[in-house]
Simulated scan of single mutants.
Amino acid sequence: MPFTPGPYSGVSTLALVARASAFGVGVVYGSIKLSILKATKPKRRKHMLITKDNRAATC
């Protein structure tokens, strides 16, 4: 017996619009969250060490 599409079958126009909207909201949310995380990330500093033979080494 073939499956008949209904309002909640996932093939209706409303379901397609809902999926596209959810995807768009997810992309926007993700990009905003990523930009906030990048802005609040502490800066990593490389410390230079001078060894006994006067060569610089990084930590």
Rank of each mutant, 00 (worst) to 15 (best):
V28T: 11
V11S: 06
A20G: 01
G6V: 11
P7L: 14
I50H: 03
P42C: 07
A20S: 06
K41M: 13
I36V: 15
T13H: 13
V28S: 02
C59T: 13
M48N: 05
D53F: 07
K46H: 06
R19S: 05
V11P: 05
R19Q: 03
K41E: 07
M48R: 04
I50Q: 00
L14W: 14
S12E: 02
V11Q: 12
V25E: 07
K46Y: 06
L34M: 01
S35K: 15
M1Y: 06
R55W: 01
K43T: 13
R45N: 12
D53Y: 04
G24Q: 02
T51A: 07
M1G: 14
G26L: 04
R45P: 02
V25C: 04
L16H: 14
R45I: 15
V11W: 13
T51I: 03
V27R: 00
P5W: 09
A15P: 01
T58R: 12
P7I: 12
T4Q: 15
Y8H: 13
P5K: 15
T51F: 07
G24W: 04
F23T: 09
S12N: 06
P7D: 04
G6D: 05
A22H: 07
A15H: 12
T58Q: 09
V27Y: 01
L16Y: 07
H47I: 14
K43I: 14
P7A: 05
L49M: 03
P7S: 11
S9W: 04
N54D: 00
V28G: 03
P7Y: 14
K38L: 15
V27F: 00
G30S: 03
K41C: 08
V28R: 03
K52W: 01
G24Y: 00
F3T: 03
M1A: 10
L34D: 01
F23V: 04
S35F: 12
K52P: 07
Y29V: 10
R44K: 14
R44W: 12
D53P: 00
S12R: 11
H47L: 09
T40V: 15
P5H: 13
T40W: 14
S21K: 10
V17T: 05
R19A: 10
G26C: 04
A18D: 09
T4I: 13
L14M: 09
L37M: 12
V17M: 06
G30Y: 01
T58E: 06
R44S: 15
L14R: 12
L34T: 04
F23W: 01
L16M: 11
V28F: 11
L34R: 10
L37S: 11
A56K: 06
G6N: 09
H47K: 12
L37A: 13
Y8G: 05
M1K: 14
V17S: 02
P5L: 08
M1I: 10
G10Y: 03
V27I: 07
P7T: 08
T13V: 13
L16S: 06
I32Q: 06
